[in-house]
């Protein structure tokens, strides 16, 4: 109610930028090509700041308390930390070589980083900034998912085409599940029952049962007028109630909306070019896509699954993370 009221206020009174309302979320977008993170106000849908970061920023995530944004600076071999209060880079973590994607443990204490060039997953304690373990995985590790209980992480290796299940207490691989070509992303359902893994070149999403660690469903995509080679699933997000999954389809320029009970695609939302990653607004009412080749992000309404607005950010936007307040 409060939000609705304030919205109305914001719409009627042209608030100056500095009086940025506290309830607006800040959207942080890593721009792979121009070494920046763009900060967008979710209410005004305008860029409020551009932060210079290390070279080739890709994976981006936020601490559970909302205070720190972590960004992989792939070509600088570090993970940079941005303070969300000041929107300044305040430090960095060791990451191992060429970090691309990572995932933060649900308690915010441990960062699991995929190191593409060394076939490793590096485990980092964010408090001590020390490397806790290095786990050998398949060729070109990329996607990283963590189970809601924090007990399991899943890494995908692109050339090996596997999802590696890793026990976070022992740092050892317990299961290796073959999926389709170039798996890019792993996302657990909020209840931890399934892991969804996208395969960019294979053009599919494999649904893996987290108990049996076997592929139970394979989701395929068909878009009229597009060849199958153009449909390249990358980022995946599943709603908090576990009912819908959103899959970014790369050069197909669309986000697929998938029913998680039937595993059927219910809609394709046209966004921008080469759609890469996704993130929900904290209230779940919108999801934001990064569209690499059109240099913008698209806000999508999750009730109607219609695009609301696209906002121009930096060059080759890659990942997106959203602050909770």
């Amino acid at each position: 109610m409060r939000r609705r009221h304030m919205c109305l206020l914001a719409a009627t009174v042209a608030l100056p930028f500095l009086a940025q309302p506290a309830w607006a979320n800040l959207v942080y977008v890593s721009n792979e090509k121009d070494n920046t993170v763009t900060v967008v106000d979710s209410k005004t849908m305008e860029v409020v700041k551009t932060i210079n970061v290390g070279q080739r920023p890709r994976g981006i995530t936020i601490s559970p308390d909302g205070k720190i944004i972590y960004v992989c600076a792939s070509d600088d071999d570090t993970v940079e930390m941005i303070d969300t209060a000041t929107n300044e880079v305040v430090g960095s973590l060791p990451s191992g070589p060429d970090p691309e994607l990572f995932v933060l443990s649900p308690d915010g204490q441990t960062l699991y980083v995929a190191n593409e060039d060394d076939n490793l997953v590096t485990v980092i304690d964010v408090n001590t900034k020390g490397v806790v373990a290095e786990i050998p995985v398949g060729v070109e590790p990329e996607g990283m998912g963590v189970s809601p209980d924090g007990k399991t992480i899943v890494n995908t290796s692109e050339t090996t085409s596997m999802a590696h299940f890793i026990d976070t207490s022992t740092h050892e691989i317990t299961d290796n599940v073959l999926v389709d070509s170039r798996p890019r992303f792993a996302e657990f359902k909020p209840d931890g029952s399934e892991v969804w893994v996208s395969a960019e070149i294979g053009g599919t999403v494999s649904v893996i049962d987290n108990k049996t660690r076997a592929v139970t469903h394979k989701i395929t995509f068909e878009i009229q007028g597009l060849r199958s080679e153009q449909i390249q699933p990358v980022g995946i997000r599943i709603t908090a109630d576990g009912k819908k999954a959103y899959v970014a389809l790369g050069p197909a320029n669309r986000v697929a909306v998938v029913n998680t009970e039937t595993y059927e695609v219910e809609k394709y939302v046209l966004v921008g070019q080469r759609v890469w990653q996704l993130a929900f607004m904290p209230d779940g009412k919108q999801i934001i896509s990064t569209n690499g080749l059109s240099n913008d992000i698209t806000f999508i309404d999750t009730e109607t699954d219609e695009p609301i607005k696209s906002v121009t950010v930096g060059q080759l936007p890659w990942g997106v993370a959203i602050s909770p307040n």
Partner: peptide, 10 residues
């Protein structure tokens, strides 16, 4: 080498 990295899991 790439095949062997994959192969070690199988």
């Amino acid at each position: 080498n790439d095949n062997n990295t994959t192969g070690k899991f199988l």
